Lab assay of single mutants.
Amino acid sequence: RLTVMSLQESGLKVNQPASFAIRLNGAKGKIDAKVHSPSGAVEECHVSELEPDKYAVRFIPHENGVHTIDVKFNGSHVVGSPFKVRVGEP
């Protein structure tokens, strides 16, 4: 089962990169992540390998409000996905 680490749920800033990590815990497959902005825009997140069992997911929010992040592994949502994060002040 995958572990999502260091996902900041609030206090993110517009046009500043945000990232979190995913540990695969021995699982093999493909991570896919997309961020949905409050206006409905959908953007791919950048996924990069940090070490053999750990990946970083990076995105840049372009507007204030609550964004939804879909994180999928081999086509299925990971536990807790979709995640909600707040950009800007509430």
Score class of each variant (00 low, 15 high):
R1W: 13
L2A: 06
L2Y: 07
T3P: 02
T3S: 15
T3L: 08
T3W: 07
T3V: 15
V4A: 01
V4H: 07
V4Q: 14
M5N: 12
M5S: 12
M5T: 15
M5Y: 15
S6R: 14
L7Q: 03
Q8F: 12
E9F: 03
E9W: 00
E9D: 12
S10F: 08
S10A: 10
S10E: 07
G11F: 04
G11T: 13
G11C: 07
L12E: 11
L12S: 06
L12Q: 03
L12A: 13
L12T: 00
K13A: 04
K13L: 05
K13Y: 08
V14I: 09
V14S: 12
V14C: 03
N15A: 06
N15H: 02
Q16Y: 07
A18P: 00
S19E: 14
S19H: 04
S19W: 07
S19T: 04
F20Y: 01
F20H: 00
A21W: 09
A21G: 10
I22S: 00
I22P: 00
I22G: 00
I22A: 00
R23I: 11
R23P: 01
R23Q: 06
L24H: 01
L24D: 00
L24W: 02
N25C: 07
N25L: 02
N25E: 02
N25R: 11
N25M: 13
N25W: 02
G26H: 03
G26E: 11
G26K: 04
G26Y: 01
A27F: 05
K28S: 11
K28C: 08
G29C: 01
G29M: 02
K30H: 12
I31M: 04
I31G: 01
D32A: 11
A33P: 07
K34L: 08
K34I: 12
V35D: 04
H36F: 14
S37T: 05
P38T: 04
P38K: 02
S39Q: 09
S39C: 03
S39K: 12
G40H: 14
G40L: 09
G40W: 04
G40A: 14
A41T: 14
V42T: 13
V42P: 05
V42H: 04
E43T: 05
E43Q: 03
E43G: 15
E44R: 08
E44H: 04
C45Y: 06
C45N: 02
H46Q: 15
H46M: 10
V47I: 10
S48R: 11
S48F: 11
S48M: 10
E49F: 10
E49M: 14
E49C: 11
E49D: 10
E49G: 12
L50I: 11
L50Q: 15
L50T: 11
L50D: 15
D53H: 05
D53R: 05
K54P: 03
Y55T: 12
Y55C: 15
Y55W: 11
A56R: 09
A56N: 14
R58D: 10
R58F: 10
R58N: 15
F59A: 02
F59N: 00
F59E: 00
F59C: 04
F59Y: 15
I60Y: 05
I60S: 11
I60T: 10
I60L: 07
P61H: 00
P61E: 00
P61A: 02
H62G: 13
H62C: 13
E63C: 08
G65N: 07
G65Y: 01
G65W: 01
G65H: 03
V66Y: 11
V66H: 15
H67D: 00
H67G: 02
H67P: 00
T68A: 11
T68W: 09
I69Y: 05
I69C: 05
I69K: 00
D70C: 06
D70E: 07
D70H: 10
V71K: 00
V71R: 00
K72I: 11
K72M: 09
K72A: 11
F73A: 03
F73I: 13
N74R: 06
N74T: 11
G75A: 12
G75T: 14
S76M: 13
S76K: 14
S76D: 15
H77V: 12
H77P: 07
H77D: 11
H77F: 11
H77L: 13
V78P: 08
V78T: 09
V78S: 09
V78D: 03
V78H: 05
V79H: 08
V79T: 13
V79Y: 06
V79W: 03
G80K: 09
G80S: 09
S81M: 02
P82M: 01
F83N: 03
F83D: 02
F83Y: 09
K84D: 13
K84E: 14
K84V: 07
K84T: 05
V85F: 03
R86D: 14
R86W: 10
V87D: 02
V87H: 01
V87F: 02
G88S: 05
P90Y: 03
P90I: 07
